[in-house]
Amino acid sequence: MHSHRAVCAAFDASKECARCCWLTQVELASRLNATQTFISKCERGERRLDIVELKQWCEAIGLSLVELAVRFEDACNKRA
């Protein structure tokens, strides 16, 4: 899978979870001590997260890193 599409699949899964928690980008940014612009860039694939940042992101939306990985795999398989 093309790397940009893979990143999009991961963030589609994380955005879905954030929406289920009724989190806006501003609220998520507050939880991460980041800016709304940072969240937006990550969600659009303009900014990639390292593994530590990804774990923090998952914790902020109430999702384990393992669960995100499972959702990521599912999303990648659906797009293939």
Results as ranks from 00 to 15, higher is better:
Arg79Thr: 09
Ser30Ile: 11
Asp12Phe: 05
Lys41Phe: 09
Cys20Glu: 14
Cys17Ser: 11
Ala60Ile: 00
Glu67His: 12
Leu68Trp: 06
Ser3Asn: 14
Val7Asn: 04
Asp12Cys: 04
Val52Gln: 05
Glu53Ile: 01
Phe11Ser: 00
Ser40Asp: 07
Ala9Val: 03
Ala13Phe: 01
Ala6Thr: 08
Lys55Met: 07
Ala13Gln: 01
Arg19Glu: 10
Ser14Trp: 07
Lys41Asn: 10
Lys78Asn: 11
Val66Leu: 14
Ala18Thr: 02
Leu23Asp: 08
Phe11Glu: 00
Ser64His: 02
Ser14His: 04
Glu53Met: 02
Gln36Tyr: 09
Glu16Lys: 15
Glu27Val: 08
Lys41Tyr: 11
Ser14Gly: 01
Leu32Asp: 01
Ala18Val: 02
Phe11Tyr: 06
Ile39Trp: 08
His4Gln: 10
Ala18Glu: 03
Val66Asn: 13
Phe38Val: 09
Asp74Val: 14
Gly45Glu: 03
Ala13Lys: 00
Glu59Tyr: 04
Ala60Asp: 00
Cys8Ala: 15
Cys76Gly: 12
Arg5Phe: 08
Arg79His: 08
Ala80Pro: 07
Phe38Cys: 10
Glu43Phe: 15
Glu46Cys: 03
Leu23Thr: 11
Cys20Ser: 15
Gly45Trp: 03
Glu67Asp: 14
Asn33Gly: 14
Gly62Val: 01
Gly62Ala: 05
His2Gly: 12
Lys15Trp: 06
Cys21Val: 09
Glu67Met: 13
Cys8Gly: 13
Glu16Cys: 09
Gln56Met: 04
Trp57Ile: 01
Arg19Trp: 07
